[in-house]
Design a protein around this nucleic acid. Structure first.
Lengths: 224, 224
DNA sequence: CGTATTCTTGAGCGACTTCAAGTATGGTGG
DNA sequence: CCACCATACTTGAAGTCGCTCAAGAATACG
């Protein structure tokens, strides 16, 4: 519809140099952090608290969210093993974070990271690229929220499949309520939509949180 | 419907003397860009195109947006005078940008910015902080999209008032359709809601795009 | 001054929510 | 290992907010 390619004289940059899929940041020996275990549903940090650390999920999974005064909750993102969260420019967190299940988190001091970035351009660039990637994800999330319920669920399933599929199925760590709050739907709509996908053989349940994707192309079409 | 004209080459002669509002980034003499004029509804860059530049609005206003295959459009953000957009980590833009009205844009090469950031930790930090601020805004936008129509409009009005109120009123540069696509509503709902605010003396129209906020606390309460 | 565009208004409809049970599931102590 | 309970998930029926379709009014522009 609107895509036309534009002629340019400057060759495209080497992508690999800029985008590291799952960034090696925090693998560097000289950035030292501590690993901390968190039980299911335990808060890692709260909205409004001073942001002194940055976090990397070693195993388990995490949700970040904002709540409105009347209790409505918007989950801004899920973070799975290997992913980094808590990067914020302000001195305080603008959202809360909780462990979805038993999780191990690597906790790194912000100031240590900054000074590392200061002295090392490569680190600084990675830090920025990571934040920019997060921004992109957030924008896609907003795009998700204008879609229909079926489309949102389809997009969610494809996303989760890509991030944590193994042995032919997807094992969701989060509850229906979490999914609902991520997709801006009610828990009933999530449940009903999943049931309808199951009845149409688009997916197959092996327990309520273990799902086999049987018809990806249909999900992809819904993903518009 | 929306005309698409496009730049192919960037003229070198013009050099901007930049006066700015917000971030001091791009005020530095050694980052050189060129100012370009854009007519109303003209595309600045398109989704999927190589991202070679970063942009700063000198005057006028800009919308960035994504479109779904069936034409639904999500405006991800509005950028007003002094604000910076187009910062992306990937080699290509993940959204499109258009001038809302006659706008003047400062266009800066990405690579120049990166090398500046490389050699100057302060620049690198500003670049990151700017991206992180954008992320925060995007997350707040997602939060907006779970609210009711009235709440979304209230939040929008307060946001716009803060960013461009003058002489006691807000002069909106964007159409009702733009507002609708930003808030995930239809144009009719936007219009109806504004009318109801007006009837309740929460706001007052001085022309369809010129609005006086008469009852901010009510708008703030709606902002939950 | 006429035409195109933008904005408003109305009526009916539909997707998702709300309210209300009912059914699995999983963890715990006996 | 089973019985129990709490939690998580599903299903149904009715309601509602925002959408769709359809005109009509206001505004901008040549």
């Amino acid at each position: 519809m609107i895509s036309r390619t534009r002629l340019t004289t400057v060759p495209r940059e080497v992508k690999a140099a800029v985008v590291t899929a799952h960034p090696s940041l925090f693998n560097n020996a000289w950035i030292n952090g501590v690993t901390m275990p968190f039980e299911r549903n335990v808060e890692i940090f709260g909205e409004g608290e001073p942001a002194e650390y940055v976090y990397k999920v070693l195993n388990g999974s995490v949700r970040t969210y904002k709540v409105l005064s009347d209790g409505r909750r918007q989950i801004t993102a899920f973070f799975l093993a290997g992913e980094i969260f808590g990067l914020e420019s302000d001195g305080e967190h603008s959202y809360s974070a909780e462990a979805i299940d038993k999780a191990t988190i690597l906790v790194i001091r912000r100031c240590g990271m900054f000074s590392a970035a200061e002295s090392n351009g490569e680190i600084a660039h990675q830090l920025w690229a990571l934040t920019a990637a997060e921004l992109k994800r957030s924008q896609n999330h907003a795009l998700l929220l204008i879609k229909t319920a079926k489309e949102r669920i389809a997009a969610f399933l494809l996303d989760m499949a890509q991030r944590l599929e193994g042995n032919g199925y997807v094992e969701l760590p989060m509850s229906r309520q979490d999914i609902a709050d991520y997709l801006g739907l009610t828990i009933e709509t999530v449940s009903r939509t999943l049931t309808s996908f199951s009845e149409g053989s688009t997916i197959q349940f092996m327990g309520s949180r273990r799902i086999v994707l049987r018809n990806r192309s249909e999900l992809r079409e819904l993903n518009a």
